[in-house]
Amino acid sequence: MSIYIAHRLFAPHDRALAADLAERLARKIGADRIFLPFCDTDEEDLVAEVKGRRLFELDRERLGRLDAMVALLHGPSLDDGVCMEIGYAAASGVPVVVVTTDFQTYSLTEWDTLLDFPDPLIQAVAHRVVRVPSLGPWPLPDRQGLTRYAEFRFRNLSQVDAALDAAVEVLLNLPVPGPRPVCDTEPGVVYVEGSPYAAWGPDHLAEACVDVGHGVIVPQRFTAADPVAGALADLTAVCAAARLLADVSGPETPPGTALLIGVALASGVRIAAFHPRPTYTHASGREPNWRNLMIQYAADALLTDTKAVQTWLTV
Rank of each mutant, 00 (worst) to 15 (best):
R153F: 14
R65T: 05
H282N: 07
V82C: 00
A298S: 10
L66T: 10
V125Y: 01
Y297R: 05
E43L: 14
Y4A: 15
A240F: 03
L114E: 13
D226P: 06
I271Q: 00
Y191C: 13
D300C: 07
G178V: 02
A19V: 08
A91V: 01
R131V: 14
D67A: 09
V218T: 15
G87N: 06
A240C: 04
T236Q: 14
F56Y: 15
A301P: 03
V189E: 10
A231E: 01
K307Q: 14
C83P: 03
D203K: 05
Y106N: 12
T100P: 01
T105H: 11
R53H: 09
P137F: 00
L108N: 09
H275M: 06
H275Q: 05
V170E: 15
D305H: 14
D305L: 09
V189F: 15
Y106P: 13
D247S: 01
V130I: 12
P137K: 03
V248Q: 00
P254V: 01
L302C: 05
L259A: 08
V315F: 10
R155A: 08
P187W: 11
V82L: 03
D116S: 14
V50H: 08
L55A: 07
A298V: 06
V212S: 03
A126I: 03
K28P: 06
D203I: 00
A150R: 15
L55N: 01
R8W: 05
P118K: 07
R143M: 14
C209Q: 06
R153E: 15
L36A: 14
F222I: 04
P76G: 04
F274P: 02
A224W: 01
E186C: 13
A126F: 08
T101D: 04
D59M: 08
T314D: 09
D102W: 04
A283Q: 15
P181C: 00
S107N: 06
A206P: 02
